[in-house]
Simulated scan of single mutants.
Amino acid sequence: MTSPPPARNWLLLEGGGSQTWAAATGDTILVTAEGPSTNPRSVGEERAVHRLVELIDRVWDDPATAPLGVVAAHGAASTSAAAGDFATLIRRALALTGMTAPVLVTNDLTTLLLSADGPVCVANCGTGTGFAARNGVRWARSSGLEWLLSDEGGGHDLGTAGLRAVVRSLDGRGPDTALTGLARRWCDEAEHAGGNLGEILFFHVYRTEAAKPLVASFAQHVLEAAEDGDTVAARLVENAAAELAAGAAAVCRATSITARTGYTLVLSGSVLTEATLLRGHLMTWAHEHLPPAALLQHTPKSRPEDLLRLRNLWLTPKALAPLAAAMPTHADPAPPALGGARS
């Protein structure tokens, strides 16, 4: 006689400007899946819902029950209103799979602030940027208002600066740079034989609705050129690091974290955690101005634990209230003890 499959109880989501991670949990993490961005400001609402449906279908194959609740830490939650909007998209995706469930959505930095005891400062640099700090009852956040209003130093900002440096070089407004050759490779010029690089770049960047993550992907070429000694790229990386330092300093100042505070610095986001040169510039600044007592680097392995810690706050309303007052958050009433059946 075969044993029944383990029950799926909670649906977890984490996402930023380029990727989304999903998991179904019971007593342990049962199944996970990764997919592209579900941020509606990057890919549009309909595509975001479609991608959420795909992820839910991949991790939730139990036809008998719906999740007790959905816990989401997502970059789409730039403001409290935006968190509510993204919760609506999650409900739409659930409905398309035949389910309903209460939803908690908060900014993707929130779980990182819960990942260490004592004072914490988070510096996140992926497609965009975000900074947050917690020191006792004091919380603060900066940047994270998307690419038109903030995100200086992030992947989209650095990629844009690199592409502009290429165009400036092509039309004589700026110096020669190794980024020009890298831009040709980035565009896959074979698809556009016969055109000049300016025209090729124009077509490559503007042909897609998802220009934000596309442009952000060029940041890796800027970092590569800087590592190889290109002076134009090196200056752009230094400028990005200065923006990251300014963001971290702002939230530390707002929460009274000083050079004498024993705080944990958490680094997250693919651009920051994978780029040795950029991370090195930021750590040089930190050691000179705000030396951390401990350094943590957010990795995918910590996602389930971080999100389950957030779930536990959701189930304790008094504990959730201070967090929700400081970080963009939408919370449906806490879910009941037992899950509901599919409608």
Rank of each mutant, 00 (worst) to 15 (best):
G172H: 15
A331C: 00
L109Q: 08
E243D: 06
L223M: 15
A116G: 10
T284F: 05
L323F: 13
E189Y: 07
V166I: 14
A319F: 12
V103A: 12
L278V: 00
G69L: 01
P335N: 05
A254N: 11
D108M: 05
L96A: 15
S256Q: 10
P175Y: 09
V271D: 04
N239L: 13
G155I: 04
E146M: 14
R309I: 12
D85H: 08
D230S: 02
I90D: 09
S217Q: 01
A286T: 10
H74L: 02
H330D: 00
L158F: 04
A241N: 00
R134D: 03
A241Q: 00
G153K: 00
A7W: 13
G154T: 07
L272G: 04
S3R: 14
T258Y: 08
A123W: 02
D27L: 14
A123C: 12
L323C: 10
T177K: 02
E34N: 11
T284V: 14
W21G: 10
R279A: 03
A183E: 03
S143G: 07
L201H: 03
P40W: 06
T329P: 05
N135G: 06
D332H: 08
R185P: 14
G154H: 11
A324K: 01
V237A: 05
A72E: 01
L12P: 02
G26R: 12
G154W: 06
E34C: 09
E199G: 07
R260T: 15
D157C: 13
E305N: 07
G162Y: 05
R309Y: 14
T329E: 03
T32N: 07
R47P: 15
K301D: 12
E305Q: 08
M283A: 12
A241M: 03
S37K: 07
A259C: 09
G75T: 00
P335E: 02
S143L: 09
P317K: 07
S343H: 10
G269I: 04
D61N: 08
H50L: 11
L214E: 00
L307S: 09
S150A: 02
G340E: 07
M283R: 08
A249E: 15
V166R: 04
C187Y: 13
D176C: 04
T276L: 06
H192C: 13
T32R: 06
A66R: 01
N196Y: 15
R8C: 11
S217A: 07
L320C: 02
P304Y: 10
A249H: 15
E224A: 05
R51Y: 09
A183R: 11
A22I: 12
L278I: 01
T32M: 06
L277F: 03
L52K: 05
A226W: 00
T180F: 00
L214I: 02
N107H: 14
R41F: 15
L277A: 00
G194C: 07
W285F: 14
L197D: 01
A321H: 15
W21S: 06
L113P: 15
S78Q: 13
T111G: 09
S18L: 03
V266W: 04
L295F: 05
R342I: 09
F203T: 13
K301F: 09
R185T: 15
A24M: 03
A294K: 06
P119L: 04
A325D: 12
